[in-house]
Amino acid sequence: MSQAPVPVARWRRPFEAIRRRALGGPLALIGVAVALFAVLSWAGPAQAGTPVRWTVPVSTKPADIKAGNVLFDLHCSSCHGMGAVGASAPALLSVGPAAVDFFVSTGRMPLNSPKAQPVRHRPYFSPKQIAQIVAYVNAVDVAHGTPGPGIPAVVAACKKQGPECPTLSEGDQLFLLNCAQCHDASGSGGMLSNGYVIPSLRAATATQIAEAVRVGPRPMPNFGPGQFTDQQVAAIADYVHWLSTAPDRGGLGIAHFGPVPEGFVAIIFGLGILLVVSRLIGNRG
């Protein structure tokens, strides 16, 4: 690896030989494609200037809506009412695809009892079934004339700030200013009054983060387009996703809960080991 750089001229010759054999064209094409792919995957799909569509399209196919209707009637209507008009749980006539996708894909719904606190679970439905339920509720909302927020699209953070390109730094600042009070700077969650548990964000996907920002699952406030642009929502989602997937610098991140687990480790493991050591060497004369 530590060889001296090879002069360019010596490399050009074999390439020319290849081109002469009419293999050069396809090879060069493949090379360019690989290089392009590498550049794109390095910098993320959204380059500066590339138009980004900020919502994920929801299916309007009658077959999906019908399948969603069946699922809804079976699993949701006992609380939300037939036709999502509400019963012991709120009506879903204006919630929009983001809310439905968030609650069902994080396993918060279906809920055993309408009084229980919805917390993250393994999703009950398959992704296809979730899409069908979303399609159904969306159709109901549209028919009611009150469509809610769509599922926000999230693009991977770019290396360079562009007009429509969220950066990790932007996400970091927005997250610390708006989210960390409850979810902790490391996204590991916390506690609110009245027994509300603030969930850890480390298991959530970027899309679920963005949905929660837009929807505001109680007791979290919702942040509408007046507060965050679509790009800012994507920036927050990207940053949180990065936070939970990037390797911990400096070693094992103990629960990412800050000084309390650190003190625990210092006393139990740090001093504990040293007490055992003292016991082993201390009583020897």
Partner: peptide, 8 residues
């Protein structure tokens, strides 16, 4: 930040 605690 939520988990703002001092050292032990």
């Amino acid at each position: 930040s939520a988990g703002t605690q001092p050292d032990w």
